[in-house]
Design a protein around this nucleic acid. Structure first.
Lengths: 220, 220
DNA sequence: GAGTGGTCTAGACCACTGT
DNA sequence: CAGTGGTCTAGACCACTCC
């Protein structure tokens, strides 16, 4: 009785997942060390390391030096969400992209924009954005009437990190007018702020027309 | 004129990010191969591979055999969202966790539950769940009056993969009654379905009380 | 077919951290 | 202080894919 040969790090990952799945290694339990597993599987320790690291990044395992590797006690679902450029998002759905600048004014050291993105002519998402003129001074010379801030910033003002929040909110009068919906309608909101090192680059609130869903997947 | 020594794969990752950031390697451009970079940085190819692989996983680079490595043309923001167990989510916010089963009935080969999770006694999220009695037959013998399906399933019915959707919706009469809010109020919704290989395990719709935000971060 | 990334190995040293 | 994971190396072969 033989079992399929376990060679690659992905095979090892699958086998470890199977043992966790089958409760051979229940949640919270410390599993054998890398050296021991390498011997069992007949491979190099680096290969085991590769497999266990992948599982740790996925949230399935928790690893600490000296303490060892254990099966995660509270297996959160770790989902990776891709937030595309809006034009891309619309065009990939096979729809025609449209863009309208609604409002624009400078105040102090910031530029505030409001814009509407359309899919096949229908309002898709309302964008309320602030751009730092200290970090991205060239924004002051851009009209943003034909190029969305979304795309201009990507090509012009790189960032090092940011944070994102998802929530729901009732449509304000401004949003309702722009999207052509009743005030108070439930909107899916994405708020994003990005920095270039310590300098804030931009902050944006995207208000999606009712019905919008953000999909993602989880594995193991 | 010397620059800081570049040794670790994280140093290499940072240096590559810097060159992309500084437009030395603009979006779409093919960057030097691993061998060449390894020579430049005076390290092993595996170390360069480690750094470039990390950037590829983050969406910053696109790699293909033979074609080489290029800077991503449409740098989507790839955010990893941790979706914790609800009890944990509440307790980590320093609030007291409460749970009430609202409804329960079996139909055909499925068990349908409605429940309410509370934070410091206030309604936090309304849960509407379906559990496959084919995949998880033991669910039929569970009352779920004191143990939430959320936690019971984690401890009992593992899954291999699933999908998640985020959206916003107006509170239904049922949700409004449970959460103590007006009908039509904007709710943040998480819909999740999980499978164990080909068999559907459970599907759940979580309706969060108004104001709830799901936070995450992005880097590079 | 040839060039690139993907992976594996065997060994070594390092870094963190629990005891 | 000692044990575990984290990383690096030098070399090798493989797998994919563009030409």
């Amino acid at each position: 009785m033989t079992r399929p040969q376990i060679n690659s790090w992905q095979d090892i990952r699958a086998e470890v997942q199977r043992r966790i799945h089958a409760r051979e290694w229940p949640p919270g339990q410390v599993i054998p060390g890398e050296v021991e597993l390498a011997e069992e599987f007949g491979c190099a320790r680096a290969t085991v390391n590769r497999a266990l690291r992948a599982l740790a990044e996925a949230g399935t395992l928790e690893r600490r030096r000296k303490a060892g590797t254990r099966v995660a006690l509270h297996p959160v679902s770790r989902a990776t969400v891709d937030i595309p450029v809006i034009r891309q998002e619309i065009e990939e759905a096979g729809q025609g992209y449209g863009y309208r600048l609604l409002d624009r004014f400078e105040a102090n050291s910031g530029l505030t924009l409001r814009a509407l993105h359309l899919a096949d002519g229908a309002p898709y998402v309302h964008e309320n954005r602030w751009i730092s003129l200290e970090t991205a001074p060239k924004a002051a010379t851009q009209s943003f009437e034909h190029v969305s801030a979304n795309e201009w910033l990507i090509a012009t003002a790189p960032y090092t990190h940011g944070d994102i929040a998802f929530t729901a909110a009732a449509a304000t009068q401004t949003e309702a007018d722009a999207l052509g919906i009743p005030v108070g309608a439930p909107l899916f909101i994405i708020e994003r702020t990005t920095w270039d090192h310590d300098a804030k680059v931009t902050a944006v609130r995207l208000s999606y027309a009712p019905g919008h869903k953000l999909h993602t997947q989880i594995g193991a």
